[in-house]
Design a protein around this nucleic acid. Structure first.
Lengths: 136, 136
DNA sequence: TGAAATTATTTCGAATTCGAAATAATATAG
DNA sequence: CTATATTATTTCGAATTCGAAATAATTTCA
């Protein structure tokens, strides 16, 4: 192998999924980044800005903007950590919780339709291969 | 399989590569999208805006902006098609050609270091699996 | 202790991206 | 032929993203 065909295919596949998910969450009035932040909070509970950043894969300055958006929409709350006043903890509001429970299963099934083109064995294999090239 | 772990891993891997490539091409004063456009022209020769769009994976309105940037930098030329005056053909200028030949091999080797963590057999397999989930 | 380094987060201005509407040229159907 | 539909591309304004610098709190260590 001497070319970058694999990267082309990787970018294309990611782009297809990204567009599809973005289109779906845009109908909730959320950007993809906002939705990913909500997803993380939905699964992990309250997280600091830095912890969120490691999930959402955008620059810290961009995340500040995203958090502001979610706060304005009443989807998340922000509380400062008692022990370390630099840290701001983000958590879903009741409204945010409700939105995610109303929507998340549908989101999963829609994406699983795609992933289920692979056998379980193939899917594990794909994860394994992607991790190999994706680690820093 | 019932979760979206695979998508998480996919997005992460793509993000890692994207960041790395973007960082490298930013040093040439190019955005990732601009570089991808140049890459396509470097390999395929002159392309219409629509043909470029299918390579670069951004919205047509965004591509107009990217093309304008590249034109201003003297990296591409734009000529209208004789047969169909709607079509604008983009091609690398001599300056653009020179830039790409000076840079492209280094770009490939840098990315191949990553991809060579896979055996050739694994790489083919990865391509195959990604195509399965990535097709529309 | 207390100055210097580190960590967490935000602010700022600029660059990139988007979707929807506009423009312009070509193709099609009546 | 000519009105209509389709195709190729750009324009517009708004949203999102970025990197670098700023701010603020905590830790380190001399």
């Amino acid at each position: 192998m001497t070319d970058l065909k694999t990267i082309t295919i990787l970018f294309r596949a990611t782009n297809t999924l990204t567009q599809e998910i973005a289109h779906q969450v845009n109908e909730l009035g959320l950007s993809l980044s906002s939705f990913m932040a909500c997803e993380a909070l939905y699964h992990k509970g309250p997280l600091s800005v830095a912890q969120l950043q490691s999930k959402v894969l955008i620059a810290n300055s961009s995340l500040s903007y995203v958090i502001e958006q979610l706060k304005e929409k009443g989807i998340i709350d922000i509380n400062h950590d008692e022990n370390d006043k630099r840290i701001r903890l983000c958590s879903l509001t009741q409204r945010g919780q409700n939105m995610m429970s109303a929507v998340y299963e549908k989101h999963v099934s829609a994406q699983r339709v795609r992933l289920d083109r692979l056998t379980p064995h193939e899917e594990i294999l794909l994860q394994h291969l992607l991790k190999k090239i994706g680690l820093d």
